[in-house]
């Protein structure tokens, strides 16, 4: 088990290292010189040269990368090229908000998705299954800005029961922010809900067909006991991994949803950074997102290992 965790950890660190190379090189694709971007096209060559010196842009690219990576790991994420402020406190403040929204969404769509998936599996090919599968497939395909705007149209504008705009102050406490989280959370959830439901459905169907489920039925155990003890224990195991893989979707969904609702999260900060071409900000946010994604996958792997006797005890 410890060897398993170490292996997973090693893989994830390696992956993150390579991902950092990609992020760094992509942002270096920027046409023209960063110094020019910052100072505008009318800057004097002397000013540009001074800034290049200051930013270390005259050094070889490898050195720049190494410097950037090590300072990122140390916690020195640089100074915004636009606002000239430290980016780390700026991002961390937004990260809290994004995590708040993400947690509310996860707490909503994971249990509901599992429930729907199990119901669909138990009614395989019957009406309930067709309805759940069809609707979840439809929602899984709808971009967040479409569902988000339709929800705003119905719940905020026509019925006026929830706020249409979630552009709260970044430091708002969770309790005060909660009403503003509901619509964005539903929006983010709809895409992932369908995904979780579909995956849960298929793994549950597999387990329902397994010989050991038949054996449990033939033992005359009460139906609910067969379901909770024999079926779900096995069929929800892959769901752990599925949820973690879905975090990538969730992050994409958060970016769009934050834009739709004007919610002050990391996603909106990223869009802002891209619009202003704030290289430092983009790099830091991207690295942070990759780290969050990778470690949630690691957590899922470890949880899977703990729940699966095959890995926990070795094969």
């Amino acid at each position: 088990m410890i060897a398993y965790i170490l292996r997973r950890l090693g893989m994830i660190l390696l992956t993150m290292l390579l991902a950092s190379v990609i992020i760094f090189s992509v942002t270096q694709l920027l046409p023209g010189d960063v110094a020019h971007v910052i100072l505008g096209q009318f800057a004097t060559p002397q000013a540009v040269e001074n800034l290049r010196e200051e930013l270390g842009l005259n050094r070889p690219i490898i050195v720049q990368y190494w410097d950037w990576l090590t300072s990122f790991i140390r916690g020195d994420w640089g100074i915004s090229m636009v606002s000239r402020l430290e980016v780390r406190p700026m991002i961390m403040e937004r990260l809290r908000n994004s995590l708040m929204l993400a947690s509310v969404s996860l707490l909503f769509y994971v249990p509901l998705g599992i429930l729907l998936g199990v119901i669909a599996a138990l009614n395989e090919d019957r009406l309930a299954d067709q309805a759940i599968s069809g609707i979840s497939m439809a929602f899984a395909g709808l971009p967040e800005f479409v569902t988000g705007l339709i929800l705003i149209g119905i719940l905020a504008i026509s019925l006026d029961i929830l706020p249409a705009n979630s552009s709260i102050e970044p430091q708002t406490s969770f309790k005060e922010a909660f009403p503003f989280l509901i619509l964005p959370a539903i929006t983010v959830s709809l895409t992932s809900l369908g995904y979780i439901a579909r995956m849960t459905r298929s793994s549950t169907i597999d387990v329902l067909r397994a010989d050991y489920t038949r054996a449990a039925d033939m033992k005359g155990l009460p139906r609910w006991q067969v379901l909770t003890k024999h079926v779900l224990r096995n069929s929800l195991l892959p769901t752990v991994t599925v949820v973690a893989m879905g975090i990538g979707w969730l992050i994409g969904g958060l970016i769009v949803t934050e834009a739709v609702f004007g919610y002050p999260g990391v996603g909106r900060l990223l869009i802002y950074g891209i619009q202003r071409r704030d290289l430092i900000l983009i790099q830091a946010i991207s690295m942070l997102i990759v780290a969050v994604y990778s470690f949630s996958n690691l957590a899922a792997d470890i949880l899977y290992g703990i729940l699966n006797p095959r890995i926990r005890l070795g094969g």
């Binding site: 990538g248 994409g252 990223l270 997102i289």
Partner: peptide
């Protein structure tokens, strides 16, 4: 490695630059 970066994020930073 490519899969470890959420697709929308990667698309945004590439197209943004």
């Amino acid at each position: 490695v490519l899969l470890s970066i959420p697709p929308l994020l990667l698309a945004m930073i590439i197209l943004g630059t």
